[in-house]
């Protein structure tokens, strides 16, 4: 599988990464090589293998339904200059949001 410059642009958009136009051919070459390298995986038949998501065969632990965190807005909002009236500011969201 090769990642042509137009594919790189598509993936970069999906990942919301601005790339310098001039760097795209290099990314295209690098990523194509990496994908080629990754495709060595196809040498092994895995049709009867269960996928493994986690190194440990453990289950999710649960915590009690108790409020433990309290307002730290002031502290957290020292991390950005872009707040007003306690809200984080972003360029106007033009489209009406679809609840996902």
């Amino acid at each position: 599988m090769s990642l042509l410059p137009k594919d790189v642009a598509k993936v970069a958009h999906l990942a919301r990464l601005a790339l310098n136009e001039a760097d795209i051919p290099k990314y295209s070459e690098n990523l194509t090589n990496i994908l080629g390298f990754i495709e060595q995986m196809n040498e092994v038949d895995t049709s009867h293998i269960e996928p493994m998501a986690h190194p440990l065969d453990a289950h999710q632990r649960l915590r009690p339904d108790v409020v433990t965190e309290h307002n730290q807005r002031e502290l957290f909002q020292t991390l950005t200059l872009h707040t007003e009236a306690g809200l984080y500011l972003v360029p106007q969201v033009i489209e009406t949001k679809i609840e996902e």
């Binding site: 915590r63 409020v67 433990t68 965190e69 307002n71 009236a85 306690g86």
Partner: peptide, 28 residues
């Protein structure tokens, strides 16, 4: 619930903006 699904912040309706958003809710 009292607290959020993955954090210990409160779920009460109508609080002042971002006063019930803890580090986990903020994706720190």
């Amino acid at each position: 619930t009292q607290a959020k699904i993955f954090s210990g912040a409160a779920t009460a309706y109508g609080a002042a903006p971002n006063t019930q958003a803890c580090a986990i809710d903020l994706g720190m």
